[in-house]
């Protein structure tokens, strides 16, 4: 039998590859499939949160902030419980980051509030005296891109079966319904804010980027 294999080097190579690949797969796949299931209670992002996530990506927050708490006491003391892979189930792409110029943000919703973020994005040194983070004042005037966020939500719902609109999960609905819900969420955030321009914009039915970003940051917990 072995002589027969030795006489067919290409077939033999493919066979060796398959055997080793199979051994690797049965070690990795079952555990991975289990661990990457959504953690109980993990919800797909609402339209407003998703729009805020786009602001986060657009302004490269992930270049300086990670979203991954490692299981070390020094990290869990500061940032909260260590991250689980299932918590990223609805993150496309995940925003783990690779560098902590600023602190980790994976559970920032647990210990910072809307009014704090408002102060911080307007002028970081007003709340963190030594901060080197730049101010993001343009977020108070530019409006969030809800259309793109809705397109993404609808795509992941249809293509990846993200459980939008299923019982017990985030409601998305039609574009009109989703937009109305986003505006309602935005009003709740704006009620906790002090910036007059932002409040007026939300009253007019617009959603400044800062409101969407705060909705996203508050959802990180």
């Amino acid at each position: 039998m072995f002589h027969w294999l030795e006489q067919r080097p290409f077939f033999f190579s493919v066979g060796v590859f398959l055997v080793i690949a199979f051994a690797g797969l049965i070690e990795i796949v079952p555990d991975f499939a289990q661990a990457s299931r959504p953690v109980a209670g993990t919800q797909p992002y609402t339209l407003l949160q998703l729009a805020g996530r786009h602001v986060y990506i657009k302004d490269s927050c992930n270049a300086c902030h990670s979203q991954l708490i490692r299981p070390f006491k020094s990290e869990t003391d500061r940032y909260g419980p260590y991250s689980l892979s299932g918590e990223y189930a609805y993150d496309r792409p995940f925003l783990w980051g690779s560098k902590r110029t600023g602190p980790d943000l994976h559970r920032v919703g647990e210990y910072r509030t809307t009014d704090w973020h408002e102060n911080h994005m307007w002028e970081p040194t007003s709340v963190v005296p030594g901060s080197i983070m730049p101010a993001y004042k343009h977020m108070f005037t530019q409006n969030a891109d809800l259309e793109t966020a809705y397109a993404e939500a609808l795509t992941v719902k249809k293509v990846f079966n993200v459980p939008y609109d299923q019982p017990g999960f985030t409601k998305l609905g039609s574009w009109e319904e989703a937009k109305k819900q986003a505006l309602e969420d935005a009003k709740k955030i704006a009620a906790d804010m002090k910036n007059k321009d932002v409040k007026e914009a939300v009253e007019r039915g617009e959603i400044p980027e800062i409101v969407a970003l705060i909705a996203y940051l508050n959802s990180l917990r």
Binding site: G80, E110, Y111, R112, T113, T114, D115, W116, D192
Partner: peptide
Amino acid sequence: YIGKMVSFKGR
């Protein structure tokens, strides 16, 4: 009235 303070329960 000023703003929101998070709970530190368990932390």
